[in-house]
């Protein structure tokens, strides 16, 4: 499952910019299957955590109204080339994934 996340972290002028793309259906639980009329059960990421060198820099709580295959970007002070950036997510079904990337 580790290929569900694309993570990029780049350090420039003492600021590390983090960009991530996660493959996830992000179902709200309100949508209906057009063919069967059945409600598609909710399945969305609830929490995304990002650590820089093992230190938590950002925690995101998401609801079903975050788009499918979510994109996330933010900046952190500090961080240099070679530092370790990790990102992990957990969804409402308890599925999870994480990835570690070297800051470039």
């Amino acid at each position: 499952m580790a290929d569900s996340i694309k993570l990029k972290a780049k350090s420039k002028g003492g600021v590390t910019s983090v960009k991530a793309l996660i493959n996830h259906p992000m179902e709200t639980g309100l949508r209906k299957d057009k063919k069967t009329g059945q409600v598609i059960p909710a399945h969305f990421i609830q929490e995304v955590a990002c650590d820089l060198n093992g230190k938590r820099v950002m925690t995101a709580y998401w609801g079903g109204s975050v788009s499918k295959n979510p994109y996330l970007a933010f900046n952190v002070n500090g961080g240099a080339a070679g530092d370790k950036m990790t990102l992990s997510w957990t969804d409402n079904k308890g599925e999870k994934d994480s990835v570690e990337e070297t800051v470039g």
């Binding site: 820089l52 109204s65 994109y71 933010f74 500090g78």
Partner: peptide, 19 residues
């Protein structure tokens, strides 16, 4: 839609796509 808790050093900027 989303709530971001910023840790130490995180700048006040977040980008995300919503429905």
């Amino acid at each position: 839609a989303a709530q971001f808790e910023l840790g130490e050093g995180a700048q006040g900027m977040v980008s995300v796509r919503i429905k």
